[in-house]
Design a protein around this nucleic acid. Structure first.
Length: 820
DNA sequence: AGCACGCCGACT
DNA sequence: GTCGGCGTGCTC
């Protein structure tokens, strides 16, 4: 029985609601399956790669359907669960299915549409009068035979070649040919082997060796190669061989010319092999064992578990035990980590345990590597997939367990591209679609998860002891007001901190200094009028980058040289204000001139491998003090840190963000956890102007419960999550009047549905203009007990009705469900 | 979201 | 006189 369906709903990578109906050609009918990729014509002359969403027989009446161009796969690349998952996300985050598809599916599999141009006849047959540009194109096509639109665009040196092509087409000289080109190219690497003939023929071999009597290095190399081949049956990579024994590529090449060796290419897996041998899992201590048993009990009840364990309490070992169990059940585990932790020791440990059963997926991987991971996951080749939030979108077959480590991390929320999803929340959704067990792990759980545990929605499992039995570092606050009064400050470093650093060096230990970047970026300021240069496109002062001696905007990328005089009063006396990590680094260097100091922030890490190099140097103790931002707080596990210093905690507390206190506690606790992880108790010094601040006091006592209780009380009284859900709308337009008008109108439309406590705005955010677009924001608090779906429907209806007004359409409206 | 079409300013 | 600015409308 052949497939009886004549129409297919196709998901296209567009920000348009729903799917698109296409006709299936009778030839294709028996082969088309849900989840396959197809290329379809769209609009006047575009081809898109879409995914088959469903098949049916209802001929649409309102429009004419087009025919599916090509079926790109013999088997589906997208599973039915994935399609269901995408739809769930689109619905929850108020974006189109196409938005999800675009984000969830590897770019290299969404084939590029390229228009190719060919002659109809020959160049000699052209009789029409042609313009100069047209002749250029015609000659180029004559030479190459076929050209793509983008290539023609280069020849005519214009943004678009369409007018020229169109005119040639109208004159009947060329025809257009839509061709799809797949971008995926497997990675090949160069390998070397001893010429097999030499190996079997001793005489020949000796002759060859004799010929090399003047080439010592080559003689040596061939012998090394023979040894290497004897030791292992694996192919020998040229790059690795040269690294091990020395020598150059040209040397290998000349050896190939002499017939001594053969060079050959092999298609290799882009996913790095695991080098280390597999290590058995460690025995759990009593506390861990009890925790594991408790987790299993909750899993029996199909409950999500919140695993709350202080740093170094050994969560990883528990994860490993749980993964092992899932492997026995022949089920896959998805292990989510915040992006920054992907290169961490955690991943190494998991890989050491599970070897090549592990797939790793994160944003540093290129498109080709992602395709490989996609295919391997589809073929159920991994038992564990470790990845950042994007790993949620892999085509899992039989998911049995989802682990979200560091579940409180805000990096789990996607905030740059649609859909603005939270990976922790979506992990719960995906997990439930597979009826998989879910475990959320953290040393400082998010208040959402903690609240869910308190009300019994999640199982709650705690680990209170450090695995290694080392006591948690001692945290002390330094009162900056008093230090200033007593004239004990050198720049931003108090004498107490300075002395502690000296003591740490005496013990042969390293120091980690943390400086929160936000709010402390250095700016140029005029000493006579106080004016600072602003970004021409955004409402922010430009930040000063000492090493390039330039001013940059972090929002739009604008960059200019450091001015020599004030643009406001022409004064020549300019100074730099604010304490960035750069400043701290300089100050520390002058305090400790003979010590090696390194900096770790976004700017310093821009160079390739800078991050890895810095970490390695610090591990090797080539660096005495590491100064850094958020980056140093996360995912790093150094053994020799004696002291952690926080330059100023206040900036963390004073954010205009309802999560400021929660984040401050999490971050400071996390930074503190970097001290003294192995043998001895470490020390933490936090400089602040508010040593009496409740949150800071709680940090010194490691009192998570108290902090959570305080903050939850505030959240309840001021109507914030976890007691209710938020939806934030952002309006953008080049004209202030328009954003103002549209945003106020939006609020007016929604007003009947809410009281003033639940509908806030429109407000001008602290940065009121970015990239020349003015911004307004509206915050909706979905009342407790109200249907979130209903509220979202109202929001969408209101936007729709705003869009019926011509003049309002150009205002971009962005919806962020559960903003962070 | 793209993309084409269409109507007004600054330039060869 | 054209090029190209972006406002507007449409896409199965």
């Amino acid at each position: 029985m052949t497939n009886p369906f004549k129409f297919a709903e196709i998901i296209l990578p567009l920000a348009l609601p729903g799917t698109f109906t296409y006709e299936i050609s009778p030839v294709d009918v028996p082969y088309l399956k849900v989840g396959q990729r197809v290329s379809v014509p769209f609009g006047s002359n575009k081809l898109y790669t879409g995914i088959v969403h469903s098949l049916h027989n209802q001929k649409p009446e309102l429009y004419k359907t087009k025919m599916i161009d090509t079926i790109l796969d013999t088997e589906p690349l997208v599973t039915k669960i994935q399609i269901k998952f995408w739809e769930w996300m689109a619905n929850y985050y108020l974006c189109s299915l196409g938005d999800v598809y675009r984000n969830a599916f590897p770019t290299a599999l969404k084939w590029e549409s390229e228009t190719f141009v060919k002659f109809i006849g020959t160049i000699e047959q052209i009789q029409e009068h042609l313009a100069e540009e047209e002749w250029m194109v015609v000659n180029a096509i004559n030479q190459k035979g076929i050209l793509s639109v983008s290539e023609i665009a280069k020849i005519v040196e214009r943004k678009s070649a369409i007018p020229v092509i169109k005119s040639l087409w109208e004159k009947g000289i060329i025809h257009l040919d839509e061709v799809l080109k797949e971008k995926y190219t497997p990675k090949v690497e160069r390998f070397v082997r001893v010429n097999p003939e030499l190996k079997s023929n001793e005489k020949l071999f000796n002759e060859s060796l004799h010929k090399l009597k003047n080439a010592t290095k080559q003689r040596e190399t061939i012998l090394q190669l023979i040894v290497e081949e004897a030791q292992s049956s694996k192919p020998i990579k040229i790059s690795q061989f040269l690294k091990k024994y020395g020598g150059t590529h040209s040397m290998i090449n000349s050896m190939e010319e002499k017939g001594l060796v053969q060079i050959y290419d092999l298609e290799i897996s882009r996913i790095e092999e695991v080098k280390n041998d597999i290590i058995d899992s460690e025995e759990l201590n009593l506390e861990q064992y009890k925790a594991q048993k408790l987790i299993e009990e909750y899993f029996e009840e199909s409950k999500t578990v919140l695993l709350h364990g202080v740093t170094s309490s050994g969560k990883t070992e528990i994860y490993i035990k749980l993964i092992e169990q899932k492997i026995e059940e022949d089920k896959t585990t998805l292990f989510l980590l915040p992006e920054i932790s992907i290169t961490s020791q955690m991943v190494q440990r998991i890989r050491k345990h599970f070897g090549d059963k592990v797939g790793i997926y994160h944003s540093k991987f290129n498109q080709n590597e992602r395709v490989e991971l996609w295919n391997n996951t589809l073929n159920d080749e991994y038992k564990i997939v470790i990845g950042a939030r994007s790993a949620l979108f892999l085509p899992f077959q039989n998911l049995g367990l989802v682990i979200v480590d560091e579940e409180h991390e805000s990096a789990y929320k996607q905030s740059d591209t649609k859909p603005f999803f939270h990976a922790r929340d979506m992990a719960l959704v995906l997990g439930s679609m597979f009826q998989a067990n879910i475990i959320l792990g953290s040393a400082t759980p998010s208040l959402e998860s903690y609240h869910n545990a308190q009300i019994g929605k999640y199982g709650y499992v705690q680990l209170t002891k450090r695995f290694t039995d080392v006591e948690l570092p001692k945290i002390e606050l330094i009162d900056l007001k008093r230090s200033i009064r007593n004239k004990e400050m050198v720049g931003d470093v108090s004498r107490t901190l300075e002395e502690a650093i000296r003591d740490t060096f005496k013990e042969g230990k390293q120091v980690l200094i943390f400086q929160n970047r936000r709010g402390f970026a250095p700016v140029v300021e005029c000493m006579s009028c106080g004016h600072s240069p602003y970004c021409p496109n955004c409402d922010v002062p430009l930040t000063f980058h000492k090493f390039s001696n330039r001013l940059k905007c972090h929002y739009c990328g604008h960059s200019q040289g450091r001015p020599t005089k004030c643009s406001n009063c022409q004064s020549l006396e300019l100074t730099t204000k604010g304490i960035g990590t750069e400043q701290i680094e300089i100050q520390l260097q002058s305090l400790f001139p003979d010590k090696k100091i390194a900096r770790m922030d976004v700017d310093a890490m821009r160079k390739k491998h800078a991050y890895e190099k810095t970490i390695e140097a610090f591990e090797q103790q080539e660096i005495d003090i590491l100064v850094g931002t958020q980056m140093v707080a996360k995912g790093l596990d150094f053994s020799n840190i004696g002291l952690v210093g926080v330059i100023r905690a206040d900036s963390l507390l004073n954010f205009p963000d309802f999560r400021a206190h929660e984040k401050a506690f999490q971050l400071l606790t996390q930074v503190a956890g970097r001290a003294g992880r192995r043998k001895e108790q470490g020390k933490v010094l936090i400089q602040t102007f508010n040593p009496d601040h409740e949150v800071l006091q709680n940090v010194t006592r490691y009192d998570y419960e108290k902090t959570a209780k305080d903050i939850l009380y505030e959240r309840k009284s001021f109507l914030y999550p976890p007691y209710l859900r938020l939806v934030q709308l952002t309006f953008r337009h080049a004209k202030v009047e328009k954003v103002d008008k549209v945003s106020t109108e939006f609020v007016r439309l929604l007003k009947p549905m809410f009281d003033e406590k639940h509908l806030l705005g429109p407000i001008e955010p602290s940065i009121g203009r970015i990239r020349n677009l003015y911004i307004r924001q509206v915050l909706i608090k979905i009342p407790e007990g109200a249907s979130a779906a209903k509220v979202k429907e109202w929001i969408q209806k209101s936007i729709e009705s705003l869009h019926t007004i011509q003049a309002f359409r150009s205002v971009r409206i962005e919806i962020d469900v559960d903003p962070s």
